[in-house]
């Protein structure tokens, strides 16, 4: 069965089982491996992408659920070669350690800043429920605040 959707700005069609989770469609059928498999039950957030601008965990999201919708992955965050303010802030704060969870973290943070341009610590706690085993949480928090300022013109 064919499922059509927009992936990082391109119209694409996946000829797969409609129940196949979006995570595995992105990784296997479109070879975009920045989005990670971590738990398989939407508990850790490593598989977070944007669907119509909303952060969604894709390891249990059937691809048919995104038919005709707009999917954006970490690979599309740095538009035109210019880093997204979050990526800039992530490097400024030297956030990643092993780095495996960071795509999901950054996508969750991007969705947060789109909804709440200047989030409080409580907003960050509520929105950022991704698991990082390396424990980068305080740098994630600081980088989100830095990116929020940058997005609003410093």
């Amino acid at each position: 069965m064919s499922i059509s959707f927009t992936l990082n700005g391109d119209a694409v069609t996946a000829d797969v089982d409609p129940e196949k989770p979006l995570l595995w469609v992105i990784r296997e059928d479109f070879q975009l491996t920045g989005t990670k498999f971590g738990c398989g039950i939407a508990a850790c957030g490593a598989c977070t992408v944007h669907v119509d601008g909303i952060a969604m965990r894709t390891c249990v999201l059937p691809v048919e659920a995104v038919a005709e919708r707009n999917v954006r992955t970490i690979e599309d965050l740095d538009i035109d070669g210019t880093s997204n303010p979050l990526q800039t802030a992530w490097l400024e704060h030297q956030v990643p350690q092993c780095g495996y969870c960071q795509s999901g973290m950054i996508m969750a943070a991007e969705a947060l800043l789109q909804e709440i341009p200047n989030p409080t610590d409580e907003d960050i706690n509520a929105a950022m429920t991704n698991i990082c085993r390396c424990g980068t949480y305080d740098r994630v928090r600081n980088a989100i605040h830095t990116a929020a300022k940058a997005r609003q013109g410093g």
Binding site: E75, L77, W90, V95, G99, Q102
Partner: peptide
């Protein structure tokens, strides 16, 4: 190693 750990590469 960090630049490629913030863009999925």
């Amino acid at each position: 190693d960090l630049p490629e750990k913030v863009n999925g590469r």
